[in-house]
Nucleic acid binder design. Structure first.
Lengths: 219, 219
DNA sequence: GAGATAGCATACCGTTCGGTATCTTCAAGG
DNA sequence: CCTTGAAGATACCGAACGGTATGCTATCTC
């Protein structure tokens, strides 16, 4: 055992990094191995196929993401604070994942890769759907909390509004990536989310207060 | 001249079709040529590189799209009717573009391909941004019309709301594609758009009336 | 200490990639 | 009719692709 866990970890992290920069189909096994400082033999010792690496990488990425989400969704925050934490986390995620590369926004590569996968790449779609499902649970919990607090106007369908938020954020992130402008994301993220949530007038916040500053440090 | 225009047209159409099915990087030149019934020599006679084909294809696609958009945005419709036409067009586009393939939703491949392109593929990003810019104009015009008609609540930033719509729709389409469910799109498209627009109560329509049924026939 | 086995490296497989060089064919202009 | 040049066909290029076969080596078990 020349430290198998570490090798596997390195492959996963490298794969995630490279996929963030472009997408599944244009990232080669050789490239991943080279950047990870691992030979191809080692690669195929740990993963049966490139697609299997992708699946493992998406799970691995979710594990990290879950920690961040659990932190910002802590019951010690009010739903409104959780919302602000989330907005802040999304922004910080982009900064963290894009550090030292000449891109400002990354979006979620697992979501987009899955959304562009062909029919023949069912495994990739599956992994993306899995990630999707996880995210959705958290989103629903947030909206449910907001509704329970009486913050939302009307009597919205909690699951649907949660999906709305997700669709909007994903679309915005892709847009931001295309424009290569984090400011473009910042300009629309909060406002769009609040508009979709349709908060009661009393709860519409304007500024960008920072209720918690260490929410995304674990990234 | 063995009908060069037709060959070029065939290559463009085929490329569009294949890219809709997956994405730029995973569609090969050979595949395009084979399906178009054109040899690679002919391909590289018409296009310098694969990226140039992509650009030309995106322009070609926009030309078709523009016709549809001009039709549904005709001044003979009220802004509210235009909105309904747009919603309907989005749905019908998916059906048309996915016909006979085992996928129900396609999304916009030029947008997503651009959003996933690496740094080295600046041409692809450029083409996507170009498409983006065109779409935005139409979206802004729609929102402006709605606002001018006094349909919207408050005093929203027209450009921003137009962006919101676009982000939401793109995100929703990718989601729908991932889930391979047009019903998932149908379930959220209208409701989400209306929520983002924040119509005055009097103008919130519930059903799915069809103000014009021939809007998207030109597709 | 003698297997047994996990961890990994090297070399290489067949295929496909985007792209090119060269040739033929055919239609138009003189 | 004959030249000319665009349109297209064929063959091919080197590189990279995903993946495999095999062998070495370090570590664990007994």
């Amino acid at each position: 055992m020349r430290n198998a866990a570490e090798t596997r970890q390195k492959l996963l992290e490298t794969a995630i990094g490279l996929i963030w920069q472009s997408n599944y189909s244009s990232v080669g096994v050789n490239e991943i191995c080279k950047q990870a400082g691992v030979t191809k033999g080692a690669f195929y010792h740990h993963f049966e196929t490139k697609a299997d690496l992708f699946i493992a990488a998406s799970r691995h990425y979710w594990d990290r993401m879950k920690q961040d989400l659990d932190a910002i969704y802590s019951p010690s925050f009010t739903p409104l604070e959780q919302l602000e934490n989330l907005i802040q986390l999304i922004i910080e995620k982009q900064i963290n994942e894009c550090s030292s590369k000449d891109m400002e926004v990354a979006g979620c590569p697992f979501f987009t890769s899955g959304g562009q996968a062909g029919i023949d790449e069912e495994k990739i779609c599956q992994a993306a759907r899995e990630m999707e499902d996880h995210m959705q649970r958290y989103s629903v919990a947030l909206v449910r909390g907001l509704k329970a607090d009486g913050v939302l106007r009307g009597d919205p369908d909690v699951d649907q509004v949660a999906r709305f938020l997700h669709h909007f954020v994903q679309g915005l992130l892709i847009y931001g990536r295309l424009m290569n402008s984090l400011d473009a994301v910042r300009a629309d993220l909060r406002e769009g989310i609040y508009r979709l949530l349709d908060l009661k007038d009393a709860y519409r916040s304007e500024g960008s207060e920072q209720p918690v500053s260490s929410a995304a440090d674990a990234a």
